[in-house]
Nucleic acid binder design. Structure first.
Lengths: 332, 332
DNA sequence: TTGTACGCGTTATCAA
DNA sequence: TTGATAACGCGTACAA
């Protein structure tokens, strides 16, 4: 059992109240006793119990973070940002995975509520809307990062998918490409739709008519496989450049090109989205759209702190930026 | 403020004791009141406070996990294993980063102690030995995963670096290579040393004399840069195959080979260690030694559960296995 | 079958 | 300047 203030009180021959006050340098305690008790506490190895403090203060200085899976580096990078800001503010972070399973996601929320976390941050939530009712029950701030549901819920921090996709297509246009394909993802409805919007906006702004045969959404197990299939479709449609839903999709595209002996970027330009670490290391290194993942996390946690401070906050939408590497080139 | 059992008691016209008992199906409460109170609790949206329960039970059902950084997918995969077992056992996991900074690592331990976590799991700790004294203070199980300090501390789960390195070199020997180089890491003293031991053991078993010029340890900022430099050194030493401390080092080696127009694996075989996700996607896909990261995490958490159950446990050393891809080939 | 009283570790109020 | 007491939410020994 850890040392308590009562143990110290007994050892010092004072009341536990005095110990409590001395330890936090309360003005009304004589300097001598304060010094004596602080020394004693140090010596006895006293560490205050956050549990007891929480019970009294009704604040745990704790937040719960839900991600889909630790196997995906994307949400994990968001956690990094969250944790950094949290730690600096004296908050600790519970991390739990939902495995993209709504039931599990609800169970985690329930657990966090039992633990009386002060707030919850959810990355890529599948059930944004469900929180509406849940929120009435638990009455704490919930911040959604890159929420995957349509609609206006609670508080959110997200990347501007439309702007990012636009940036990608504009880059390809600038290289002289006119037949630009898009390989979508069927299982991320919201961000996929918004990236298509950006794709179309860029083309329209350039006066290029939309060709539906250039927008494909292969149904495959993994992102990589979707990329492989996507290349097949888009080469048939005579694309000279393709923009992929994300980097893994683009990597699948690169793999398929290698298999078919299609030189990237000489014969086909390939772009991704996300800028995950792998993008730097594939051959050729992938031109992509960078998502500020760590900053998403930092802003989400900062928003939590503001909310807990009673400040009013505004939903945030962050811009992406272009990272030019070697998988794109001038139209031959 | 969340609903408490007192609120329910008032609403039901009974004492809070009765509510407490009814909610956990205590035998001595009449079925009717039990049902009535459970319904009421449900209706009022009651969730018990783990904080209050913890204060009473002196158990938080919580563990603290310390990793170096969320930017590295390696420890994050360990977290995945830990969290899976923890969640199944009703434990929640605090995650915190040490950024490889011993002072920060101590601060995190202190915070976890304040929060009265039931146990702590540390990945790649830099200060294993320090825990000896700290442990006397906090009196909870501490499990180290892939500890980076020599010596016997506390409890540990680790991969067998010697066996893994041996496996790698045996693979290269089998391909006919005789001049096999090793690119080490200066900042992971323990595992590096053990991988050298495995490297030497394999060579000796094959009756090949150790050539010191084939073992290099470039001092560079990143693993990747160390790999680039390592290739330079080892080509000068006429190596036909190189075994790298880890996959990132090996990827650096691949990059340098490409720059110098050295064909892998035709002119040089390259091996890594770890089997991180990236290894699959580089060109050529990397032959490497797989570390069971998730299983390390699961075993660490299982060990924690056993320790909390008062069972005695044994330190665990896990075998690695070979993953053959396309960066290694027969000696030309 | 149900209720009263106490304690877990801490802080705040009030009194001395 | 210090101490006794109550309270946070819950579980349990004991009493009714």
């Amino acid at each position: 059992m850890p040392i308590t203030i009562k143990d110290i009180a007994k050892a010092a021959g004072v009341s536990h109240t005095t110990v409590s006050r001395a330890l936090k340098g309360h003005a009304a305690i004589s300097p001598q006793t304060t010094a004596r008790i602080q020394a004693l506490a140090e010596e006895m190895g006293y560490t205050p119990s956050a549990v007891a403090q929480s019970l009294l203060s009704q604040r745990t200085q704790t937040i719960g973070m839900i991600i889909t899976t630790t196997a995906d580096p994307f949400p994990v990078n968001i956690v990094g940002g969250v944790e950094e800001v949290a730690q600096a503010a004296g908050y600790s972070v519970f991390l739990s995975s939902s495995h993209n399973n709504p039931r599990q996601e609800m169970a985690v929320v329930e657990t966090f509520h039992r633990r009386r976390v002060d707030a919850i941050i959810v990355s890529s939530s599948r059930l944004g809307s469900v929180y509406r009712s849940e929120l009435d029950q638990i009455q704490i701030p919930i911040v959604l990062v890159n929420n995957q549901e349509e609609g206006e819920y609670l508080h959110s921090v997200a990347v501007d998918d439309v702007q990012g996709a636009r940036l990608a297509v504009e880059h390809l246009l600038q290289l002289g490409h006119r037949r630009i394909g898009y390989v979508g993802a069927v299982n991320r409805p919201k961000s996929n739709r918004r990236r298509i919007v950006g794709y179309q906006a860029a083309l329209e702004a350039a006066g290029i008519p939309i060709d539906p045969s250039l927008v494909v959404a292969p149904v495959e197990e993994t992102d990589v496989d979707q990329g492989k299939k996507g290349v097949d479709y888009l080469l048939d449609a005579n694309a000279t450049a393709i923009f992929c839903y994300n980097d893994l999709t683009a990597i699948g595209a690169l793999m398929e090109c290698r298999r078919r002996n299609i030189a990237v970027p000489q014969q086909l330009s390939v772009m991704g989205f996300d800028d995950i670490e792998i993008a730097t290391y594939v051959t050729p290194p992938l031109t992509t759209i960078h998502q500020p993942r760590s900053r998403l996390g930092k802003l989400a946690m900062q928003m939590v702190l503001d909310l807990l401070d009673g400040k009013s906050v505004q939903d945030k939408v962050l811009n992406c930026n272009l990272v030019t590497r070697q998988s794109t080139a001038d139209l031959a």
